[in-house]
Amino acid sequence: MEVFGYVLFLFTMFVFWTNVQGAVSYTNCTKLTSCSCLTDTGLVVDLSPLTDSSGKAKFSDVKAKSGDDFSWNPCKDFTEKAGTATCTNVAACQIQLSTPPLLFGLGNQNSASFNINGKKNLQVSYSSKSDPKFTRTAIVELVCDESQEGTLTAEGESPPTSGKYYMTLTSKYACAKSQEPSNSSNGLTVGSILLIIVLVLVIVYVVVGVSINKYGRHATGKEVVPNYTFWTALPGLIKDGVLFAFSGCKNGSGTTYDNI
């Protein structure tokens, strides 16, 4: 039973590591489509569930701190009109609230590119060079939040006259996730299956271990807990290991071990 306890602990740590991989940072995301990319950790960021396919923007006329409004639609271009002005077949649109209003396209889906910004967040950018001397670029920072369906805020142009217009999407679809087959969206993920296996093994381990100790070895009290000594010593061993690693692998006297 003691060997089984060691194996169970190591397997539990493996499952924990497997399930937190989506939270691990990545340094690159290669474009797959105009609204999805593949990270260098093998996970995918896919904004397609946020797409409006009606020809309109999913996020429309979002007020920016700079005073302008911005519209954006992942995956598919849209068209927006205001008076006689129009943004035609664009991924993002700037609306200057003048009289009459002025609309400027900020690039279409074909211009989409992905990169990591200075805050270590993924961002998708679109560019338009309608004026030969001036390029307009929409930059949407993607913030992972599993509790949010999708919320867009706009900061506007920064710095002024730069032609760079910033927005921020906070959404669960901005999170990097493992690729799932399209016909298994309602099935269990690999992480869920591993967690179920761990739960079953823990139950079997406890029930069998208690039964052996109580009825086979006639143990009483805390001694009926399988591998009681190992589990009570484990927190201290982990603590000692962490302190040893962070102390530069020095022993208790403060000196390093001799080289082999």
Score class of each variant (00 low, 15 high):
Phe59Asp: 14
Ala176Leu: 05
Leu195Arg: 05
Leu50Asp: 09
Gln96Leu: 07
Ile196Pro: 01
Val3Asn: 13
Thr33Tyr: 10
Ala85Thr: 04
Lys133Tyr: 04
Glu180Tyr: 02
Asn110Gly: 03
Ala92Asp: 12
Asp131Trp: 00
Asn28Ile: 03
Gly216Pro: 08
Ile116Gln: 13
Ser125Leu: 12
Leu194Lys: 01
Leu97Ile: 05
Cys75Asn: 09
Glu180His: 04
Leu243Glu: 15
Ala138Thr: 02
Ser125Gly: 05
Gly156Pro: 00
Gly107Asn: 02
Cys35Ala: 15
Pro101Glu: 05
Ser171Val: 11
Ala154Ile: 01
Tyr26Val: 13
Ile203Ala: 15
Lys31Thr: 01
Cys175Val: 03
Asn121Tyr: 02
Gly216Arg: 06
Lys172Glu: 14
Ser147Met: 06
Thr33Lys: 10
Trp17Tyr: 14
Gly107Phe: 00
Thr255Leu: 11
Asp145His: 06
Ala57Gln: 03
Gly156Val: 00
Thr256His: 11
Asn110Cys: 00
Asp77Arg: 05
Leu142Asn: 07
Phe11Thr: 04
Gln109Thr: 07
Gly248Met: 09
Asp68Trp: 05
Val200His: 01
Met167Thr: 14
Ser162Arg: 03
Trp72Glu: 10
Ser253Ile: 07
Cys144Thr: 08
Tyr228Thr: 03
Lys58Val: 00
Gly67Met: 06
Lys65Phe: 11
